[in-house]
């Protein structure tokens, strides 16, 4: 295997971005009861958030596009990701990488979760639909940001585990369901935002219909451990639909000069 370099955080970035964020994170963590294990997870989580912030800053520098709203970062900072990964992978929970959660499914790379949450641009009063609950992590990240989250899982054991987990962790504004996500959640439609993490051969038209005017839908495309691009479907006030395909990362396929 070629060695995979660890992401380097440059000193300037450390002072510019990471340090203030760490201060913020520590300030926020001060409100958390200081139990031993919780402390350890909280520390790792703060590290993960700092990593994401630094990476987002890098991306911002490379592309000039502003990204990752502070409230999204706050949600990432308060969601106990270790609760959403299999017991034996808990030590890796706050690494910025995807992890298997069984049944051939994954919990996405934290940076991608943050990015998708940010792209959804959902506000405090919003109703959000998620197709593909998986571990429940994405729903948990969304929960503090919006009014209600409705999430559907196609694989029964995954859906049951996620439902119990979300309930146990007190995510009272997340509704879960096991079943077919293709037709959305008719009774609760329309939605301000929809996130589809299940593989689809085409954009399900019923989901587009259940999107409110002004709503946004995000679909990651690729293979389980490697998101290739993100599809952003937006519906304007007149109901006109636009589809965008975005790379998660600043990457130009052409070298500038030669």
């Amino acid at each position: 295997m070629p060695p995979v370099p660890i992401i380097r955080v440059r000193a300037s970035m450390l002072t510019r971005v990471v340090a203030p964020l760490l201060v913020l994170a520590v300030a926020w963590l001060a409100g958390v009861p200081p139990a031993g294990a919780a402390d350890e997870h909280a520390e790792k989580r703060a590290g993960m958030v700092a990593t994401i912030a630094a990476l987002a800053a890098d991306d911002n520098r490379d592309t000039g596009r502003g990204r990752l709203a502070p409230r999204v970062m706050a949600a990432m900072g308060q969601t106990p990701r270790h609760e959403f990964v299999p017991e034996r992978r808990r030590d890796d929970a706050y690494r910025n990488s995807p992890l298997p959660i069984g049944h051939g499914q994954t919990i996405s790379q934290p940076y991608i979760v943050a990015l998708m949450t940010d792209l959804l641009d959902a506000g405090p009063g919003d109703r959000v639909l998620e197709v593909g609950t998986g571990s429940g992590y994405q729903a948990a990240v969304l929960a503090p940001l919006v009014a209600r989250v409705f999430t559907i899982e196609i694989i029964p054991p995954l859906g049951r585990t996620a439902a119990e987990r979300l309930k146990r962790l007190g995510y009272g504004n997340v509704e879960t369901r096991i079943g077919d996500g293709y037709y959305g959640w008719e009774d609760e439609a329309p939605f301000d935002a929809i996130v589809v993490t299940a593989a689809a051969s085409h954009i399900p038209p019923p989901l587009v219909q259940q999107l409110k005017p002004g709503g946004r839908m995000v679909i990651p495309v690729g293979e389980r451990f490697h998101v290739q691009y993100l599809t952003l479907v937006t519906k304007d006030a007149d109901g006109h639909v636009t589809v965008r395909e975005l790379l998660p990362v600043a990457f130009v396929p052409l070298t500038g000069d030669h």
């Binding site: 995979v4 370099p5 992401i7 990593t51 990362v249 600043a250």
Partner: peptide, 16 residues
């Protein structure tokens, strides 16, 4: 390889 592994934190590996 070097470019996308450096970008792995930002989801770059999906492009590799």
């Amino acid at each position: 390889l070097p470019e996308l592994t450096a970008l792995r934190g930002r989801g770059g590996l999906g492009l590799l």
